[in-house]
Simulated scan of single mutants.
Amino acid sequence: MYRYFLTRTATAVALALVLPVTSVSMTVLAPATAQAASAAEALIDNFHSGLLNTMKQASSLGYSGRFKRIEPLVKRTFALQTMMQVIVGPEWNGLSAADRGALMDTFGDWVVANYASRFNGWDGESFVTTGTTDGGRNTVVVQTEIRPQNVKLGYRVLNGKVVDVYLSGSVSQLAQWRSEFAAVLKQQGAKGLVAKLRSSENQLAK
């Protein structure tokens, strides 16, 4: 059975990129946005298909096998650099190229590790796309459910990549991560966050 990873407790943070889904959930999609919505749905359906196949083979693959399967899926689906920049905030522009690279690499591995660790089996679950909404700022939110548990997930897509995931329709994972990592960045800087992410990844691999 999977153990979903979008459950960390943190204070919601107002981000320039992140808008509450509830404020756009009733917006009618314009024709151009409808075309983008179709592409966004295909992106998420492909991600879910790959994830589901991995879940069905979870035991035989083991953690390392799941990590290898999920890694290319995550990198094709998520705008990891954009997400890392939003998490770090304005301080991103002041980081060295080496620190930026280390953060992006480590963050990507950590996201993959979360999926590889949490989606560690299959008990008949399915991923169902239930619709799309205008997410504002040229984004589309793909609304989905994990059934039969009825876990609602919204994927915010910008330029063909996911930039945020919403749990229960409105809780921004990106805002939670920014809040969670803010103290580490303030007290220990980029290198401290890299160390925290690596430590967390190692715990997930156990």
Rank of each mutant, 00 (worst) to 15 (best):
V171F: 13
S117Q: 11
K68Q: 11
W122E: 03
V86E: 07
V163C: 10
E180K: 15
T132E: 12
T130S: 14
L153M: 12
G169D: 09
V86H: 00
V163H: 10
Q149F: 13
A97L: 09
V151W: 01
N120K: 08
S170P: 05
N159I: 02
S96N: 03
Q81K: 08
S126Q: 14
R66A: 03
V86R: 00
V157G: 06
R66S: 05
T144P: 04
V151Q: 06
R147D: 10
L174D: 08
W92L: 03
I87R: 01
W177D: 14
G136A: 06
V142N: 05
S172M: 13
F78V: 01
E125C: 10
L103S: 04
W92E: 01
Y115H: 09
T77M: 01
I146C: 09
P148K: 04
I70T: 09
E91Y: 01
M104S: 07
R100Q: 14
N159P: 06
S168A: 15
L167M: 13
S179H: 14
A113E: 07
Q173H: 12
T133W: 09
S126L: 04
G108Q: 04
T132Y: 09
G94C: 03
V74K: 01
S117N: 12
V171W: 10
D99W: 14
S172F: 13
L73Q: 04
N114T: 11
L174A: 10
N114F: 11
A116D: 07
A116R: 07
V157Q: 07
G131M: 11
V171L: 12
R66N: 06
G108N: 05
L158G: 04
